[in-house]
């Protein structure tokens, strides 16, 4: 029984990791209708920059602020240099461009810092509490709290502010938005910038747990995509909930389902996603778009 609850907590902890990347992916999708496969690697690059600043003696809070701003600029830069030129092209072209970003940023981190894993400075105090034999760490709770605030903020901005409305409109249909007077390009730029910063926050949250390395975010990508799909690509809160569901399902399933076991645990997020999609095709919190024929 204790094992069950321990695995539940472990699942929430892993789920928080998946949810963090999922949040960044959902943000960029909501703002630009593009799934950026390179999001994780861009986040890793920012995390490395923060780590490097700390190594050079800059206090951690300041490093996070500096790199947070820098990652916003990185997002804008990537948008203007790479995405804007192909924005009129088909989805497939953009997919390959984002894959190119994936390869590029991972190789960049590898080249600059080598393949060894590093310790990322922790933002939350270590240690935790032992509740009836189940161990809960302070960092897990901290990460969940930060993600909750982030998701709520994102959701609120998109739903309740004019800026959010403008961003959503630009993503949905750039021509019609231009007609209405929205500065589409600026909205897209903002979207990429915010997404990059969110990605950095995600990487900073999970870095201490995952150990900073050029391939840190790679195994997470599939789980993050599944989480976002599960929760609905329209909803930041959905990404968070989706991540937690995936984490818990995977943690419990890997241990208590012997025919899956820990080596086939990657099947679980897919199976869970599939089941939920078959029941509710837009994801748990997604909103279905009504298309006029």
């Amino acid at each position: 029984m204790v094992l069950f609850f321990q695995l539940l907590i472990d699942g929430l902890a892993s789920g928080a990791i998946y949810a963090s990347l999922a949040l960044a992916l959902v943000l960029i999708f909501r703002a630009t209708r593009i799934v950026n496969f390179g999001q994780g690697e861009m986040a890793t690059l920012s995390a490395y920059c923060a780590w490097q600043l700390c190594e050079w003696g800059v206090p951690i809070a300041l490093s996070l602020l500096i790199v947070g701003a820098a990652s916003f600029l990185l997002g804008v830069l990537v948008f203007r240099a790479v995405i804007k030129p192909v924005s009129k092209a088909s989805t497939e072209t953009v997919v390959v461009v984002t894959l190119g970003l994936f390869v590029f940023f991972q190789a960049l981190c590898l080249w600059l810092w080598g393949a060894d894993q590093r310790a990322f400075p922790a933002m939350f105090p270590g240690g935790g509490w032992d509740i009836l034999g189940v161990r809960v760490t302070a960092s897990t709770l901290g990460i969940l709290l930060v993600l909750l605030c982030l998701a709520a903020t994102m959701g609120a901005i998109f739903r309740f502010t004019r800026l959010g409305l403008a961003m959503r409109a630009s993503a949905y249909s750039s021509e019609k938005s231009l007609l209405v007077g929205i500065r589409v390009e600026r909205m897209l730029m903002l979207g990429w910038g915010f997404a990059a910063t969110t990605g950095f926050i995600a990487a900073a949250l999970v870095g201490p747990r995952l150990f900073l390395s050029p391939t840190m975010m790679m195994p997470i990508l599939l789980y993050a995509l599944a989480s976002a799909t599960l929760g609905g690509w329209d909803s930041p809160l959905g990404a968070l909930v989706g991540g937690l569901i995936v984490g818990v399902a995977e943690s419990l399933g890997a241990t208590f389902l012997p025919f899956i076991g820990a080596d086939l645990r990657v099947v679980i997020p897919i199976a869970v996603t599939l089941v939920i999609l078959l029941v509710r095709p837009v994801g748990l919190f997604g909103s279905s778009t009504v298309v006029k024929v």
Binding site: V82, V86, V103, F104, A107
Partner: peptide, 12 residues
């Protein structure tokens, strides 16, 4: 790796 990534982007 860097060059390959850039190659993909440039190609597109």
């Amino acid at each position: 790796g860097l060059i390959y990534g850039l190659c993909l982007i440039a190609m597109m």
